[in-house]
Nucleic acid binder design. Structure first.
Lengths: 229, 229
DNA sequence: AAGGTGTCAATTGTTGACAGATTACTCATC
DNA sequence: GATGAGTAATCTGTCAACAATTGACACCTT
């Protein structure tokens, strides 16, 4: 919907923001890589002015880092910083979930249930590793966040945090059991929402995301441990 | 500390960001007021380029709103949107408080206690209305947020949210008893921190901020109710 | 007189060029 | 062969001029 607003007037800066975000998230420009304004501007077919505006906006989101008089790099966060992002997401999406419990329409709840069960989720879950971080998983979270009816919260979670996390997502092998567990946690959350139990919904969502975070943390600990142990 | 980094190389865009933020928060430019780039640029003694970059950054923070090809105005949020901001602050500062309980040094805890009791807080509280939103109150929150040791969280709460809320703070008469209650809630929070009880610290901070939010909401409801009732 | 149409001033969007700073390189010196 | 000053090249920071869009006013049509 925000995109629709941009489509109305695709200023070069807006388009540059979109394109650049995509380049970063898709990994075409790697974390830590330096960005040269003139070069990138030529690649995008625009001049440096609008590009600089786009860069400044991405700086605000933490995707780019500028060193004065030297240049801008794509952010290259440490594992700890990524974990910190997940921690922030935990409380914000917990809040969204609590609000959603009070505000989702019956129709939307029904749709949420469909998302959870239709979306070939069962196959994914049974096959073992598919569900976690699948479109089905993402859609479930999206619906709940939107259901909070809190524009600022939606903007923050969907616009900023998700993009950043999508980028920084740790490409680690998730534990085999995680997919099934995640799916079951989703069911518990859905049930709390259907009971209109905001407190429980918030708590369950926070626990759900905490598990995801710990799963990552664990994978990193293993990968980071000395291989000659 | 972020300012220190800017002082190193105060680019015109950085300075414009600072000055413009100040102009908005001090109320020199009022909510809803239109900003003309050329005029403001001349007032700040710079050209439109750096100013536009600063504006784009403030757009990201939600302090300015741009209508494509028409202009930018200072945001003019509804009461509901302000309440939403407070709600977000609740969970984020709750998180900060939980982390602080685990991470504050004994020295910092001592300092926090001093802030609470020294800062002529007693006089403020006894006099009735002084404490709430006083420097002492703010300092207490600042110390805890910084104590979370979470750069991103600190940046969000202190850099973005506080400035926005400082600006949009509802100039409403707070209930007489609120100051004393707020002070006592601070004491409870401090005690939880000293016990290193993160769970309780988070819960208490959230309740504390929730009370503040409800106090505002109440004041608005009264002010907003039809006077001919 | 009401409604539509064309024109014009004002403002945003964009560009290319200039100035200042930083980095990398060269060359002389130890 | 290593080190350091000096210099050149490159890139960021900034500006002023140009293009495109908007909104308002006057004018014409019905």
């Amino acid at each position: 919907m925000e995109v629709a607003a941009l489509e109305k007037s695709p200023s070069l800066s807006d388009r540059a923001l979109e394109r650049l975000t995509e380049l970063i998230i898709r990994g075409d420009i790697k974390p830590g890589a330096r960005i040269q304004e003139a070069v990138l501007a030529r690649q995008l077919g625009i001049s440096r002015g609008p590009l600089r505006e786009a860069i400044r906006r991405l700086e605000g989101r933490g995707l780019l880092v500028r060193i004065p008089n030297v240049g801008v790099h794509v952010a290259n966060p440490t594992v700890d910083e990524i974990i910190d992002l997940y921690t922030i997401r935990e409380v914000l999406e917990g809040l969204a979930c609590r609000l959603a419990a009070e505000r989702l329409t019956d129709k939307e709840l029904k749709r949420l249930r469909d998302v959870l069960f239709d979306h070939s989720a069962h196959e994914d879950v049974k096959s073992g590793t598919g569900y976690y971080q699948s479109p089905g998983d993402q859609d479930f979270h999206f619906q709940i966040i939107k259901g909070s009816r809190q524009a600022r919260l939606i903007e923050t979670l969907l616009g900023d945090l998700y993009q950043v996390l999508r980028f920084f997502r740790y490409r680690s092998s998730i534990k085999p059991g995680r997919a099934k567990a995640a799916f079951e946690e989703h069911i518990s959350i859905l049930e709390a929402l259907e009971r209109r139990d905001g407190e429980a919904a918030e708590r369950l969502m926070r626990e759900h995301l905490q598990h995801a975070r710990l799963s990552i943390q664990e994978a990193v600990d293993i990968a980071g441990s000395p291989p000659d142990a």
